[in-house]
Design a protein around this nucleic acid. Structure first.
Lengths: 104, 104
DNA sequence: CCTGCTATGCTTAGGCC
DNA sequence: CGGCCTAAGCATAGCAG
């Protein structure tokens, strides 16, 4: 490509590396958009965004269940979380209790 | 490209669409591998795998906290979850209580 | 850091196995 | 589906601003 062929190995010069990165990254993104239109595919980048968003939501939910970052929550939200926690505890305790059923 | 230019819009013929998909997909993967080597980047696909894994782990944790899929858990694991739930409840109830502090 | 240029050479549509 | 082939068309390395 370009003015000459290059070997595929780490580019040591950091500014060249950065320039190549941003040029090639744009190229890849363009191709990804094209394939998503041409082939009706969900395209790597959209999927990445979707999964990242899902990830973020689960992190928030986990923190809430652990009692973190809850200062800004509304009362209804707190009630919902409390109920989820109580249900979880009930499930866990039933499971623990069943572990103790004598085998004879 | 190829024998002629094509417009970037959904390819209606499904077998052509599939062929173009697999050819272009390989091209994108090759480029992604190249950029990851050239620029020491984590490459889209590795990041996707990492995030998917993280996602999966959080889903399991959330289900456990909700008391689901716990039949196969060891006792120590159940204890850990119970403790997390109790801590969460304490946090939530403190927060709820503080909502009721009279303002005068 | 970007943008634009341009010579090279890589990618790929369409055909055919 | 995957491979091979070829001609068009694209992407891009190396510079310059």
């Amino acid at each position: 490509m370009g003015r000459g062929k290059i070997e595929i190995k780490r580019i040591e010069n950091s500014s060249n590396r950065q320039v190549t990165y941003s040029k090639r990254r744009n190229g890849i993104i363009k191709k990804a958009k094209e394939i998503s239109v041409l082939c009706d595919a969900k395209n790597l980048s959209n999927e990445l965004d979707r999964i990242k968003k899902e990830n973020e939501n689960m992190q928030i939910e986990l923190r809430h269940l652990k009692g973190e970052d809850i200062t800004s929550l509304q009362f209804r939200e707190l009630m919902r979380i409390e109920e989820a926690l109580e249900n979880g505890l009930t499930g866990i305790r039933n499971r623990q209790a069943s572990s103790f059923i004598p085998t004879s």
